[in-house]
């Protein structure tokens, strides 16, 4: 039986169709979840995809966190349900308080759209449990505000608790400690700036997103 994956759509999301394709490719049964509905519709996993939710007005994710669907996502996460936020989705999850830290404007004010080399730092998360620890994955990034930042205490906690999920091999945006993705204490909520749904075919230049997407479907 394939797992049902809900892909949240806000006004301004733009990676949801790619994510539907990618999830079908790895054997999931994806469906869209409209931001205005306060339910995750009984799905087995939730993805908050990339884009510009609510136009990124005020701050990326600042308005999206108040969308009705987010209270359902928070409940789902609190019950242990797997939730992954990608790019703008990562920004939404930090604003919603489901993940620590914040995403700042890139160092050097550069919008970066390029393949990034990412090291899998832990396989103890819903997004990396089928990946290999230490593996280097080539997955594109595409953002202006992906510069992960948090206070020293939070950073120490993330390191001590093995919650840095992915690190950049070469830091593209100024992120503290080269962080590309982190998880929550329960390890069921993961946020990352790179786009695994864009690394699902040799035609796209890489298939390195597949082990991450498969992880989400492996229970």
């Amino acid at each position: 039986m394939s797992l049902r994956v809900g892909v949240v759509v806000f006004p301004g999301s733009n990676c949801e169709q790619d994510m539907l394709e990618a999830m079908r490719l790895v054997g999931g049964e994806p469906e869209l979840l409209w931001h205005g509905d306060a339910t995750v519709n009984g799905v087995d996993a939730v993805i908050v995809p990339g884009g510009f939710a609510h136009g990124d007005y005020l701050r990326p994710g600042a308005i999206a966190r108040f969308s009705p669907v987010m209270s359902a996502v928070a409940e789902f996460a609190a019950a242990g349900g797997p939730v992954v936020g990608i790019c703008n989705g990562f920004q939404v999850l930090t604003e919603a308080g489901l993940l620590p830290g914040a995403l700042q404007k890139n160092a050097g004010l550069k919008f970066v759209c390029a393949p990034a080399q990412l090291r899998v730092e832990t396989t103890n998360s819903v997004l990396t449990r089928s990946a290999d620890k230490g593996a280097v994955l080539s997955i594109p990034i595409n953002h202006f505000e992906g510069n992960y930042t948090c206070d020293a205490e939070t950073l120490a906690q993330l390191r001590d608790e093995d919650r840095v999920v992915l690190r950049y091999v070469v830091n593209p945006n100024g992120s503290v400690d080269d962080i590309a993705g982190v998880c929550n204490e329960g390890r069921n909520v993961v946020g990352l700036m790179p786009h695994p749904e864009r690394s699902t075919s040799e035609l796209l230049g890489s298939t390195d997103g597949l082990p991450l997407l498969r992880s989400l479907l492996s229970v």
Binding site: Q104, K105, N106, A107, G108, L109, N147, T149, G174
Partner: peptide, 9 residues
Amino acid sequence: GIADPQGST
């Protein structure tokens, strides 16, 4: 203490 890329530029 928070870096300000806009201010620096």
